[in-house]
Amino acid sequence: MNILVIGCDQVGAALIRDLERIGHDISVVEKDPEQLKRLDAFDDYTFHGTALVGDPTDPDTLRRGGVENCDAVAAVTEEDSVNLMAAQLAKNIFRRDKVICRVSDPHLQILYHKAYELETICPTVLTEQAVFRALSK
């Protein structure tokens, strides 16, 4: 699968590595060139995809990043608003079917899912659930 990842913080870099390891072709768009250095931080991994520095909320940047030819988009920056904008562009302008949007605020997760019909992942909720399960044993 050809996947466009938006954001290369700790989550984005680890996601890119893991997706490449199982055979996916990855492109990444990141606005901060320093963040792309995370791709070189893994001892046993070399990034083979395409990296683009640019604003992920700009349709032209997404186009240069390969959004028109990708099978899926994962907007996983640390900024909810950037993820929402990029995910909406991918879904509504570029008509990508598989779009995942990282959302830190649980209240926004519900809004993004219901109002914008986006598939969302909320690390805050996932962490709370994991801690709850660990404490409930």
Rank of each mutant, 00 (worst) to 15 (best):
C122H: 01
T77P: 03
V28I: 11
V67P: 01
E30L: 06
D25M: 13
I26N: 00
V73L: 08
I26E: 08
A13Q: 03
S81H: 14
D43I: 11
I121K: 00
A72Y: 02
T61C: 14
L118M: 06
G7K: 02
S81C: 08
L39H: 05
D18K: 11
R133M: 15
Y116S: 07
L62G: 04
V73G: 04
V67F: 15
A51Q: 06
P56N: 10
D32C: 01
Y45R: 00
P33E: 12
L4C: 05
V28A: 07
N69P: 04
C122D: 02
R102Y: 07
N92I: 08
D58I: 06
L84N: 02
E119A: 11
N2K: 14
K31A: 14
A74M: 14
R63F: 09
R102P: 02
D9P: 03
I121A: 14
Q109R: 13
Q109I: 08
A86D: 01
L89S: 05
L19E: 13
R102M: 12
R96E: 05
N92M: 11
I121L: 15
F94W: 04
G66C: 14
T127F: 03
A130H: 04
P123T: 07
T120R: 00
T124C: 08
S104W: 04
L89Q: 01
Q35L: 04
A86K: 02
T127Q: 02
I22A: 05
A51P: 00
M1H: 13
E30C: 01
V99K: 07
T120Q: 05
I110T: 02
L108I: 06
E78S: 12
R102G: 03
L15T: 09
L84H: 02
R102A: 09
P33C: 11
L62Q: 05
E34I: 12
V67E: 06
E119M: 11
A115T: 05
A86P: 01
R96G: 03
R64I: 13
A75Q: 11
T77V: 03
V11I: 15
V5C: 04
T77C: 10
A87N: 04
A14W: 09
R63I: 04
E128L: 13
V29K: 01
